[in-house]
């Protein structure tokens, strides 16, 4: 499938903000199931984008505007060919040993309730356990954008049994790690098949390390493994490591942010996508 992503994030400050800088994780790296056809990041102010790679192998850009800014617009547009792999990741760049993905963080640290959930879904087989956990969250959680924040941790979200994709993903990795299954947070984009092409924010899901298969992507928000409709952008121990934007500034007063993400399946069909990947 050819996925086209096109979004613009606009920051507006009440007064000019100085020393604005942003650490961006908005550009995907390729792997066997994901071939990057083109990718562009544009900013509408004078400044520099410095590309680097973080600890997890994500492509990062530091955005340094030259002077104080009152508005800042970040435009990301790209095309990627994906191949159906039923969530199994291969050929990815893995700079870290898998063991580190057993580490819990401030946002994933399990409480007794999450540990109990772990015991409830544990089958003794990592793959089956992850499927059960995914189904459980899909069925028992309600998607609600108004009850959690970007700093809500897994235990809190689980107590609410509600949240957004970020919360589903945090609960998933928390429980998987508590069972000794290395797991990580993934941020990216999803082409929805329900007719909506413009979404308020990007998507998040999880990957778990399964014996014999390697990393497998599970999307508890949608109760399934990732498909070719998923475009993987960044991974980390939790949201903070994989967040599309982490920024800082001095002054500027109130900040308003608008982001609209358009993901569409376009162009060559799935078969042509496969041919391109093999080429």
């Amino acid at each position: 499938m050819r996925i086209r992503v096109d979004y613009r994030t606009v920051y507006q400050y009440a007064s000019a903000a100085s020393d604005v800088l942003q650490l961006l994780r908005v550009q995907p790296a390729g792997h066997e199931g994901q071939h990057i056809v083109s990718w562009r990041i544009d900013i509408d102010v004078d400044g520099h984008l410095k590309r680097a790679e973080d600890a997890f192998g994500n492509i990062t850009h530091m955005l340094y505007p030259d002077g104080p800014v009152k508005t800042l617009s970040l435009h990301v547009v790209g095309e990627v060919d994906t191949v159906e792999s039923h969530g199994v990741l291969s050929g990815g760049h893995e700079p870290l040993p898998a063991t580190v993905f057993l580490r819990q963080t401030e946002l994933t640290r399990p409480d007794e309730a999450l540990r109990a959930l772990g015991r409830q879904v544990d089958t003794g087989d990592a793959l089956a356990t992850c499927h059960r956990l995914t189904s459980f969250l899909y069925e028992q959680f309600s998607f609600d954008p108004d009850v959690t924040h970007s700093h809500t941790d897994a235990a809190h979200a689980y107590a609410l049994k509600a949240g957004v994709c970020q919360d589903y993903a945090h609960v998933f990795v928390s429980v998987a790690r508590s069972l000794g299954i290395p797991a990580r947070y993934v941020s990216g984009h999803l082409v929805r098949n329900d007719g909506f092409v413009t979404q308020p924010a990007a998507h998040a899901w999880a990957e778990a390390l399964v014996p014999d298969l390697g990393w497998v992507a599970f999307d508890p928000t949608n109760g399934m493994c990732a498909t070719q409709a998923y475009l993987r952008v960044a991974v980390g121990l939790d949201y903070r490591d994989a967040a599309p934007v982490r920024g800082a500034r001095r002054g500027g007063g109130a900040e308003t942010m608008n982001v609209a993400v358009t993901t569409t399946a376009t162009g060559p069909n799935q078969q042509q996508g496969q041919i391109q990947t093999q080429a």
Partner: peptide, 13 residues
């Protein structure tokens, strides 16, 4: 080492 919070992943490599 790998699970230790003092082991800073950002310094690997």
């Amino acid at each position: 080492v790998l699970m230790n919070p003092a082991f800073c992943l950002h310094m690997v490599g």
